[in-house]
Write a protein that binds this DNA or RNA. Structure first.
Lengths: 336, 336
DNA sequence: CGCAAGTCTGACACCGGTGTCATAATGTCG
DNA sequence: CGACATTATGACACCGGTGTCAGACTTGCG
């Protein structure tokens, strides 16, 4: 398997390598005859251009990196799927890089990432979207980035978010409209800005309907199924038991459902349960979870799309977009 | 933000770029004084070497590609997590590339991938692990690859699998030992070799215990939750109803559980349900699913580890490894 | 002290493409 | 048919590193 380079193609076709390069990139000013000839040699020698060499010359890798630190697998796959869609549309590829926000050496870690592969841009997903430290580092290094689902308003960088507070408000109001007043809440991971947003939506809905906020009804979770199970235990033991639980994501809601069922409670007759995200599990269990559909793929897709735009033209305006979240009512919530 | 290259560092430090390169790569034969001086300039200028230039010179990208076409998100994230572990250990990065086995242009798709990013190797996950067409293409192109969970015995390439047939045999035997004889089976996607393996394990266990195989009890699934729900409908309508269902993966088993519960059947009292894979959902639902734990992360980790070994030394022996699957009994199966 | 071996360092080609610019070939038009 | 615009092509530097090799400088030891 000897290597076929642009030089061998040029030699074989009897033209200069620049002409081969022109054919390769569909540049104008190549006579049809020459183009044909070169294309034939491509086939004959089974030539594939070397992306690294091309990258060096153009100072581009056509690779976008995706950063995440998230216990929800489904969130991650949705993020990836949206990012990939945008990448492939523009002939980019996606490199994934999970790492810990609280790791002792986040910046070193990212620095190492940038030393081992040159990335044209970075998509930051929660909780990185809100990491001031990381953002400053990227700016200093002059790395393009886009932020997904960040709470920070920042006109100097691309950001696509969904309205978490509004979503949490709506789902809480949904529970209230069903007659619930004693509604427990499970918080998400403190590093995620969504946690505060969703909590705030919950509180605002209570206030709006003159229901006193009761700190006893609030449990600390971290978005993981496991943390949901722990919180569920606390909540189900409360006296009197809340008639509804709103968990900050579907995994934790699923955990509440599992523990309630194990305790011989009927859902939703004995207790209503609501989640957030519309993760696959929300419809894979019975009863299906009432939840808020967050357009994760779409957010990420738009973020990456903007990012690629910015890579090709650094002067393009950096947009801030907010997408709507949508209430999805399933079987896990019912009238009191 | 002006670029800091090896040339500027060399000039600033008053040494040749080769010496800078030596310091960069921790090569011997640099006097401590010179090394110090250069390292100081690195800091001072905030120099980061360009991975693309390095890649060109070394003919390496230090990027591994991961191919998949799989409806199970949890399978994919487990694959990614195992692959990432091995990659990061050796300073590689991971590029993900989902694509369709049956897409009109698989080879063109992969060719395009290789044209847009130079990958040092490829991890093939099911169903690509068994795609003869793809494997021939990669061999022709001289691309290193490793196959995960493939059924094909092939001494010429790296392969790490788990014993699916044995696992299916065990779980079927588990059901039989509980007194079940009318055991329905839901097949996986026909493109996946695991489908045939698991089916075969099911049949062998029946035979071993002198239970006649009944084709009526076999439904065609494709590993997706949705297909499991379709199959579940068929199976639950059978007269008499089977007393147990063994679905080829946990998503389909979860679908059976959901439909059974919706039909007011109690699991496992009225019907036992078993899955395969030990996906997160198996323990996130109630009752938890009896299933086979497949070491997906470990398989992928080992495959990538071998792959990286092969990249650095093409003459290293290509190993074939088989890992054990393990029966996990939860609440979804019980005595007849 | 002299010579061989070992340590440091830099000049230079090279990896495989792309950008710039000069020049040759062809076309257009009065 | 000559002057000029346009198209086609190649020479050459360059992207930012690494590999090879030669030469200068140390060191060890008989």
């Amino acid at each position: 398997m000897k290597k076929v380079t642009i030089n061998s193609v040029a030699e074989y076709a009897g033209v200069s390598k620049k002409t081969v390069s022109r054919v390769l990139n569909n540049e104008p000013n190549v006579s049809p005859a020459t183009r044909e000839k070169v294309l034939k040699v491509f086939k004959e020698l089974d030539y594939t251009p070397n992306p690294i060499a091309r990258g060096l010359a153009r100072n581009r890798s056509f690779i976008i990196g995706c950063l995440y630190d998230n216990p929800s697998k489904s969130y991650i796959t949705r993020v990836q799927s949206g990012a990939l869609e945008a990448c492939h549309k523009h002939n980019y590829n996606l490199l994934i890089h999970p790492c810990e926000l609280r790791g002792e050496a986040l910046i070193e870690n990212i620095e190492h990432l940038l030393t081992t592969s040159r990335l044209d841009g970075l998509v930051l997903t929660p909780p990185f979207s809100d990491s001031q430290e990381l953002i400053e580092f990227l700016q200093k290094k002059g790395i393009n980035y886009a932020r997904v689902a960040s709470a920070i308003e920042d006109e100097t960088s691309i950001s696509v978010r969904s309205n978490d507070e509004q979503g949490a408000f709506e789902i809480t109001e949904h529970l209230i409209s069903l007659g619930h007043t004693r509604i427990a809440f499970i918080k998400g991971h403190p590093d995620h800005s969504a946690t505060e947003q969703r909590f705030s939506g919950y509180q605002k809905a209570l206030a709006e309907h003159n229901i006193a906020f009761d700190a006893e009804l609030v449990a600390e979770g971290n978005f993981s199924y496991h943390s949901g199970a722990d919180s569920a235990k606390e909540i189900l033991d409360l006296q009197p038991r809340p008639s509804a639980v709103f968990a900050s994501n579907d995994y934790m809601a699923a955990a509440v459902l599992k523990l309630a069922t194990q305790s011989k409670l009927n859902v939703p007759e004995d207790i209503s349960i609501a989640g957030f995200d519309n993760a696959p599990i929300a419809r894979h269990i019975w009863p299906g979870l009432t939840t808020i559909a967050q357009p994760v793929e779409e957010m990420t897709r738009q973020a990456v799309e903007q990012l690629i735009l910015q890579i090709s033209d650094p002067d393009v305006e950096k947009t801030q977009t907010t997408l709507e979240a949508k209430l999805i009512v399933r079987e896990s919530t019912s009238k009191l």
